[in-house]
Design a protein around this nucleic acid. Structure first.
Lengths: 205, 205
DNA sequence: TATAATACGGAACATTGTTCCGTTTGTCAA
DNA sequence: TTGACAAACGGAACAATGTTCCGTATTATA
């Protein structure tokens, strides 16, 4: 199985279905599906049956598949919105806290996002090519957001240099996916340990 | 609960005390299934179809289910052996390196185990109650192994106190499950950062 | 309002986990 | 060695879920 190597500037598959606006009923169906799917994914994880989502959204499975040709397309669409919200939080935190504080708070924010999306990691690991674009999108949105916070924290001398935003994202993602077993307190503690490991004064290597 | 102490070269198939020995053909089937499953899991991940494993092992699906009533039971059985090997490595490392060095080396050893078991984390996160016994066993074997190394590192003053082996296991598990995206070097770097975060001198809180 | 393009619903199909049961095999006492 | 019986076997059948197909309903437009 060939995995595509993710490069930095890689963005912009045709994420936008450009040409014609959706018909009114189609737009209704799409909105209902996205909203319902988010709710179901949050409570039951992304493994929830497609039929359940369609039923709760008040549409048939055929309609669901018209909008999202594969189950994974629905998952990807739902997560894209969530990721956008998380990325946008970076600017707010940067304006309200010191660089080091903003960095750790954003890490915790990102951590809680990952921790509440049960099955997200499962999906990314599934090997389904439909998910290939998802990590790329995650990084294209979250990478720059974190990089800004990271650069500021390095510049202020609170964090030692030498780390890429992308690798920290991966690390914290994994760290938090285990949160379900240790509870929210566990996740927070471990993210804290990890961020401490980045601080100036920590043993390099 | 007290477990039987294992000798070095001791090979032990039965986890449960043999109330009755398996019939010869049953033992053959069981061995073939475990060996085949390990191979298939390693190459294709734990999501490999049950039929494929049964076929490659040269038995019927009925036979597979006789030995492992649920798919997850087979997964658990396969990983138990792997986990035992990892746990046993702790004593060896402790005898060959300083406490701090042994701790980090064992973390890296555990990390590579997790990273090469694609889908292990997926299974643990599936929410299927059938997998509940798996983390429990992992901790029952790996927890004490790590705790010994951790205590020694704290006693020698290299690591600050206040951490449980179990929470570190969870954290490093998550950290390494992301290794497929960042590569082995990434995993090693991130584990290193994490361990550095544990060292005395790191900012507590 | 009439017409065509678009969207809808759900039955039908494919894949995979699991169960059931008639058949085969190993064990052990006679 | 042999016969009886419990244990184990194989694979068809069942259940759950992702996906496709197509006849019907709705919407946009002239």
């Amino acid at each position: 199985m060939d995995k595509k190597v993710r490069g930095k500037g890689e963005v912009e598959e045709d994420v936008h279905p450009p040409a014609r606006p959706l018909r009114a009923d189609a737009q209704r169906s799409r909105d209902a599906l996205l909203e319902t799917a988010l709710s179901v994914f949050t409570t039951s994880g992304v493994d929830a049956p497609v039929r359940e989502i369609a039923e709760k959204a008040g549409v048939g499975v055929g309609t669901l598949y018209r909008h999202f040709p594969q189950r994974s397309d629905l998952i990807a669409a739902v997560f894209r919105r969530e990721v956008d919200a998380c990325a946008d939080a970076a600017a707010v935190l940067a304006s309200e806290f010191s660089p080091g504080e903003a960095l750790e708070r954003w890490m915790q924010r990102f951590a809680s996002f990952v921790a509440t999306k049960r099955g997200l990691g499962t999906a990314l690991h599934s090997g389904d090519p439909a998910y290939d674009a998802l990590p790329a999108y995650f990084e294209s949105r979250l990478g720059p957001a974190l990089q800004t916070l990271l650069d500021a924290a390095v510049a202020s001398g609170e964090v030692r240099p030498g780390f890429e935003a992308s690798e920290l994202l991966l690390a914290v993602s994994g760290l938090c996916m285990m949160a379900q077993y240790g509870g929210p307190v566990h996740a927070e503690r471990m993210v804290s340990v990890f961020v401490n490991g980045l601080r100036r004064g920590s043993d390099p290597q």
